[in-house]
């Protein structure tokens, strides 16, 4: 009898895991707040999710890029610098896979913020993009005021970059996935091939998600 109960327990656990797999929505990360709104004459409490604030940068073509340039797009953001000898080559070796997977998808973009705008001028970013072999407008390398970039990084829930004694920069290697409502939907270790593969899967899930509000 006890054995049977254990067996049932195991089956139930397995079933629970299975149904978890099928749940094809990604969580929304970040701080949340509530707001009381009037809906159909009734007062209801609505959840306000953290969003990525407005920004203004320049891409590798010298075009001005703001949050409006990403309107209607799902995108992945990361922070790097072109002379980075440590994790950036690994990150962008992995990001190239993401680029190649989605480069012909109209509502997907990659934005890489340079944390060393002094060195990474527009021509330097263009040269880097050419070297990387990326063309078109599906992967933008952005630069702007250093403080703007550093402040924005905290909205992506990544570590604020720092300049170390060796005039290098300390920063996170995370890829952050943002949905069309500018909510954070995933954070992946850009230096880990497997985690990046998981992100590619999650981007597909997110693209399949309808634009309607997610009940949560």
């Amino acid at each position: 009898m006890r054995k049977l109960a254990t067996l049932i327990g195991v089956i139930l656990l397995y079933a629970a895991c299975k149904s978890e797999d099928k749940q094809a929505t990604l969580p929304i990360y970040g701080n949340r707040d509530t707001k009381t709104i009037t809906k159909d004459g009734k007062k209801v409490v609505d959840t306000i999710y953290q969003t990525i604030p407005a920004f203004k940068f320049v891409n590798q073509y010298g075009d001005s890029i703001t949050q409006n340039s990403l309107k209607g797009d799902i995108y992945v953001a990361d922070f790097f610098f072109t002379t980075c000898p440590s994790i950036c080559p690994i990150m962008h070796r992995n990001m190239l896979k993401v680029y190649n997977e989605f480069k012909n998808v109209s509502d997907f973009k990659i934005i890489s913020h340079s944390i060393d705008p002094k060195h990474d001028s527009v021509p330097v970013l263009k040269k880097y993009a050419d070297g990387l072999g990326i063309t078109g407008n599906s992967w933008w390398l952005l630069q702007g005021k250093k403080d703007d970039t550093y402040n924005l990084s905290t909205s992506y829930l990544v570590r604020r970059p720092e300049e170390s004694a060796k005039e290098l920069f300390i920063h996170d290697g995370y890829f952050v996935l943002i949905d069309k409502q500018k909510h954070i939907r995933g954070s992946y270790d850009g230096t880990d091939e497997k985690d990046v593969a998981r992100m590619i899967g999650d981007i597909k899930i997110l693209r399949a998600e309808t634009n309607t509000q997610i009940a949560q």
Partner: peptide, 8 residues
């Protein structure tokens, strides 16, 4: 030892 595109 694959390098990185035309960068490395």
């Amino acid at each position: 030892g694959e390098g990185l595109s035309n960068l490395i």
